[in-house]
């Protein structure tokens, strides 16, 4: 018994009290900022550097839906590209993930793109079924961590459940491998409507580094309405929880 008490006293209080404003380490790579006066030559150079194809060669804009967050652009051209540690980078519209030169204000979700019933039904309770479809297990582990003793998203009624029948939506990770595409669709069909689709991680949003691979089959994702995009490689638990809170209208 004494041993248990010792563990508990060492353990102390672990939960993050304010998930909206939790400091993360200085080097954490969140929302990038691109200098407003980027030249055409700099944009071309950055685009050529980026193996994920996330940088537009004419404007120099960064697409967070493709970005692998390796920050090589910022290392090579620190006066042009910079990664802040702002982790609130989820979006309801795909095009909002594209960060343009000079854009320095925080990313906030577009309320008009949220379906009406989402806030009415899911604001206080949201049960999700996670499907990994070619994910590398880092996003999956971060999603698990979102429910752990530190991040504890369960305090807002957000939880992962074992069956799609119990779920209000599905959370997809991975670029969607051909071998997993049928199972993913079956899982979605088994979820009662109205149902959400949330894409977590660069791989899920665009295919990421695997976008060109013939082993990937994204027809299903591309034919569906996506409710939330959560970028990252992997997406940080704070990015996911904040995204879902914004989507469902939690303050």
């Amino acid at each position: 018994m004494l041993k248990e008490i010792k563990i508990l006293s060492d353990h102390g209080k672990q939960y993050v009290p304010d998930l909206r404003n939790q400091p993360v380490s200085a080097l954490f790579r969140g929302r990038p900022v691109i200098t407003a006066d980027i030249t055409a030559a700099e944009a071309r150079k950055a685009a050529a550097l980026c193996p994920a194809g996330a940088i537009d060669s004419s404007s120099g804009a960064v697409d967070l839906g493709r970005c692998a967050f390796c920050c090589e652009c910022a290392l090579a051209m620190p006066e042009v590209y910079r990664f802040t540690n702002d982790y609130r980078i989820s979006a309801t519209r795909r095009e909002d993930l594209i960060i343009k030169p000079g854009q320095s204000e925080p990313l906030r979700i577009d309320e008009s793109a949220v379906r009406k019933e989402v806030r009415r039904l899911f604001r206080r309770s949201l049960k999700l079924r996670q499907v990994s479809a070619g994910g590398d297990n880092s996003c999956e582990m971060e999603l698990s961590a979102a429910g752990n003793v530190n991040f504890d998203m369960g305090r807002y009624g957000i939880e992962f459940v074992a069956s799609p029948r119990h779920a209000d939506g599905i959370v997809i990770t991975g670029p969607v491998s051909e071998n997993m595409s049928a199972a993913l669709e079956i899982c979605y069909e088994a979820t009662p409507a109205p149902r959400l689709i949330i894409l977590v991680g660069t791989d899920a949003i665009s295919g990421g580094l695997f976008a060109g691979s013939p082993a990937i089959k994204r027809d299903f994702i591309e034919s569906q309405h996506i409710d939330l995009y959560v970028p990252g490689n992997p997406a940080h638990p704070l990015t996911f929880i904040n995204g879902v809170m914004d989507l469902t209208g939690r303050k």
């Binding site: 550097l49 193996p51 994920a52 692998a68 390796c70 090589e72 990994s132 479809a133 070619g134 994910g135 590398d136 297990n137 880092s138 996003c139 582990m141 991975g174 670029p175 491998s177 051909e178 071998n179 997993m180 199972a183 791989d203 990421g208 580094l209 695997f210 060109g212 691979s213 013939p214 082993a215 990937i216 490689n233 992997p234």
Partner: peptide, 30 residues
């Protein structure tokens, strides 16, 4: 087999060393 992404082939076709380095840390993220 559900997770097959064809990653070995991508190492051969990758454009440069950075691309391959990124692939290598996505073989198994854990």
């Amino acid at each position: 087999g559900y997770q097959h992404r064809g990653i070995e082939k991508l190492f051969v076709s990758a454009g440069d060393g950075l691309h391959r380095a990124l692939l290598s840390e996505n073989i198994a993220g854990d």
